[in-house]
Simulated assay, not measured.
Amino acid sequence: MQNRFVLISGCSGGGKSTLLAELSARGYPVVEEPGRRIIADQRASGGTALPWVDAAAFLRRAIDVAVNDMTAARAQSGWVFFDRGLIDAASALEALTGEPVLHPTCSVHRYHRCVFMTPPWPEIYVTDSERRHGFEAATAEHRRLMETLPALGYDVIHLPKTSPAERAHFVLATLSGGVLPKA
């Protein structure tokens, strides 16, 4: 099996976490979004590596977490699905600071060539205590990733605006060349 680490990326609030919950319910290992874990940790410890306090520190930490997630996922067998990951954090840090982290970091640590993107979907977009940015910022993030991923050699596959079950079927069928594998 070619690289079995599958990145689910795209617009904030586009249904990534819901899709990953569906894949997990089907027995596939999933890796939670680094950003949400970092926010929970920083809030619990009184830290300042939060996107609305110190975005650069937050993104550097997200890069470290994503690399560690990829290392830990090697122990899993079969497809492993990532809710965001290294490319999302490195792309955002480079856009924010101009630091050239994207190509050196993301060239060494690779996901499966197919990256599944959630499109901007205003009908399901919501903010919460961890997602404080608005829909405009989410769509700008989506545009940045749509430029970044092909430049890194990934095939971007747009997820349809359908139910989580239909999206999971679409992902699994795409990865298996149209023949749906078992979990």
Rank of each mutant, 00 (worst) to 15 (best):
N3D: 08
R4F: 12
R4N: 15
V6F: 11
C11L: 02
G13M: 06
T18D: 08
L23C: 04
A25Q: 12
R26A: 08
R26L: 13
G27E: 02
G27A: 03
G27Y: 06
Y28F: 04
V30Q: 06
R37G: 05
R37S: 05
D41C: 14
G46L: 13
G47A: 10
A49C: 15
L50Q: 03
L50M: 06
V53M: 14
D54E: 05
A55I: 10
F58K: 07
A62I: 01
D64I: 08
V67Q: 11
D69S: 09
A75D: 11
Q76Y: 13
G78C: 01
F82T: 01
D83G: 05
D83T: 02
I87D: 01
E94L: 03
E94F: 05
E94K: 03
L96G: 01
T97G: 01
T97P: 00
T105N: 06
S107D: 02
S107H: 03
H109C: 08
Y111S: 07
R113L: 08
R113N: 02
V115Y: 00
F116R: 03
P119D: 14
P122K: 09
E123K: 04
I124H: 12
V126D: 15
T127D: 04
T127M: 07
D128G: 00
S129H: 14
S129K: 11
R131H: 04
R131N: 00
G134A: 11
F135D: 07
E141N: 14
E141M: 12
R144A: 03
T148Q: 01
T148D: 04
L152N: 00
P160W: 06
T162D: 11
T162G: 08
R167C: 15
H169A: 11
F170L: 13
L180F: 06
P181M: 08
A183W: 14
